[in-house]
Amino acid sequence: MTTTEQASGFKQIQVEDFRITQEPYYLPIHDEVALFEAAYDQKVPVLLKGPTGSGKTRFVEYMSWKLHRHIGNVDEEGVPLITVACHEDLTASDLVGRYLLEGDDTRWIDGPITRAVKVGAICYLDEIVEARKDTTVLIHPLTDYRRLLPVEKRGELLEAAPGFLLVMSYNPGYQSALKDLKHSTRQRFVAIEFNYPPRDMEAEIIHMESGVDRAIAQDLAKLAEKVRNLKEHGLAEGVSTRLLVYAGKLMAKGISPRRACQTGVVWALTDDIEVQRSIEEVVTSIFDE
C-alpha cells in the first residue's frame, strides 16, 4: 500500500488504495442494501437515482465497506472505492489515462477508471449527466458481459478484475433536454431510487450524524417535510438531508435553532426573498426562540 503520512498531517493515498476502513453511518430505508449486494454479486452495474443530499454517495461508501467479505480476501478491508466527480469538460483520457512528458520521454498514467478496472474496485461516477456525451459511451463495453476497457492510446484492452463494479449517480431533478442520460447508457444499469427518508428515519439520521438530541432532530425532520411541500411551488428542490445535518451540526455547536436553520436551510435553498420569508416563517413556527 502506498500511503504516505506527511508532516503537516494530511494523508496522501493512491486512488486505487483508498478504501473505507470504518463503518460509515448509513440507515437503510428500503431494500437498497440487499439490491446492491445482489447486483454486485451478479456484476450488474448500478445507477443511483435521487435528489441531491439524499444519501447516494454515503450509500456507495457504506456498500464498499460492507462488501469486502464478498471478494474473499478478508484481510483486505473493504472494496476499494474510486470516485470520479463528472463535469462537462471531463474527457475520455481524463478517465482512461494519458501520457505525460518526463524529460524527453513520456510516461503513461492510468486514469481512475483504468485503475478501478485493474484492482477490482467500485468505480463511482458521480453526477454522470454532467459528463460529455462521448465520455459516457466509453464505459459501454465495461457495463455488459464483456467487462472490457479499451485503452485506445496504448492499443490495449483491459478486462476488469473480479471485484470491479461501475456505479453512477444521477439526479433526475435537473432533467432537461440538454442534461438527460442517453437511453443506450441508462439501459445498461439497474436503477436504485433514492428519496428523502420518512420523518422518523430522517430524524434518526440527523440525530446520528449531527449529534443534536432527538427532539431537535425530529423538529428538523418536520421542517424538512414542510419545506418539501413547497417543491415546484417556489422551490426547485426540497431541502436535502445533508443540509439538515449541517443545520443540526451548527445547533450542536450552540447556534440557536432559528439561526442555524436560517443559514443552514433557508439561505442555502433559495435566493428568492419571498420564498425565503415563507420558509423562515415555517422555521419560526417550529422552533422557539
Binding site: 417535510e225 411541500n229 413547497l230 411551488h233 419571498e274 415563507s278 420558509i279 415555517v282 413556527s285
Partner: peptide
C-alpha cells in the same frame, strides 16, 4: 398574502 400562501402550503402539504 403570497408569503402566507406558501406558508400554508408548506404546513398543510
Amino acid at each position: 398574502n403570497t408569503m402566507l400562501r406558501m406558508y400554508a402550503k408548506a404546513l398543510s402539504g
